[in-house]
Simulated scan of single mutants.
Amino acid sequence: MTEQNKKRERVYQVSSNREKSSHKLRYVEASAPHEDDCRLCVGSLATTDAQPCDFTVANTSYNDISKIAFLEKQLYSNDAYSAAFFYQALRQWPHTFLTLKAGEKTAGYSLMVPVSDSDVSLMSLLVGKMFQGKGLGKLLLSDSIALARSLGYKQMELSVAPDNASAVSLYRSFGFNTTKTVRDYLGPGQDRLLMTLSLWEN
């Protein structure tokens, strides 16, 4: 195996439990794309010198699905959300499905799912490793929160691994509070903090 094939990319992801309606945030490892991978998809992950002001967050369109699905496939392999799932998500939740872009490149996405008339759950938020260190996680989360608030939701919820200090710190910096810790939330040894954020304007 060459050094290139051994190369790993770390990505920042908030993802739902594939079997339940609960959610989790974690750091995961994904294989770097090979030279013969789809240029369209790899282009969505290519290293960029773009600065935060060059990125935009907008409602997801059908043209974004293939790149978003590629991001998922790299992370979760056979357990990844499929393109069909994202098409269905876009049909069901078109107003709470966001894509982060730098020009034609797809840098990440955010998917929020309403759980009641007043509550929304942050189901998935992803920013690729090569786009990190630019404040883009904060940008995407900030825009997600602003969108949820503008749509009239009063509370946002999520869950996060207790030992994921950077993620917990990020959420707390946005005002999320821990409501409780659930042991074995996603299976033996998979404890999670449940966090909520009030979206009421002060």
Rank of each mutant, 00 (worst) to 15 (best):
M1N: 06
T2Y: 05
Q4G: 05
N5V: 03
R8L: 12
E9R: 11
E9K: 00
E9H: 05
V11Q: 03
Y12W: 15
V14A: 11
S15M: 08
S16L: 02
E19C: 08
S21Y: 10
H23M: 12
H23A: 05
L25S: 15
L25P: 00
L25F: 09
Y27I: 06
Y27T: 03
V28E: 13
S31I: 03
A32N: 07
E35Q: 04
D37V: 07
C38M: 05
R39A: 12
S44T: 02
S44G: 15
S44F: 04
D49Y: 04
Q51G: 09
C53V: 14
F55E: 02
T56G: 10
T56K: 13
V57W: 03
A58K: 11
A58R: 15
N59M: 14
N59V: 11
S61P: 06
Y62H: 09
N63C: 09
I65Y: 13
S66F: 13
K67F: 01
I68L: 11
I68G: 02
E72V: 04
Q74H: 06
L75A: 15
S77H: 09
A83Q: 10
A83E: 13
A83S: 14
A84R: 02
F86K: 00
Y87L: 07
A89R: 10
Q92C: 13
Q92E: 14
W93S: 12
P94Y: 03
T96V: 06
T96F: 02
L98E: 00
T99R: 01
A102C: 14
K105D: 05
Y109R: 01
Y109T: 01
L111N: 05
M112K: 02
V120I: 15
M123W: 14
S124L: 01
L126A: 12
V127H: 07
K129Y: 08
M130I: 03
F131A: 01
Q132L: 13
G133P: 06
K134H: 07
G137M: 04
G137H: 00
L141K: 13
S142H: 09
A146R: 11
A146Y: 01
S150N: 08
L151K: 12
Y153S: 01
Y153C: 10
Q155I: 05
M156P: 13
V160E: 02
P162W: 09
N164M: 11
A165G: 00
A165Q: 12
A165P: 00
A167I: 07
T178C: 14
T178G: 00
R183L: 15
D184F: 04
L186D: 15
G189F: 12
R192C: 08
R192Q: 09
R192V: 00
R192D: 02
L193H: 14
T196A: 09
L197Q: 09
L199N: 06
W200A: 05
E201Q: 14
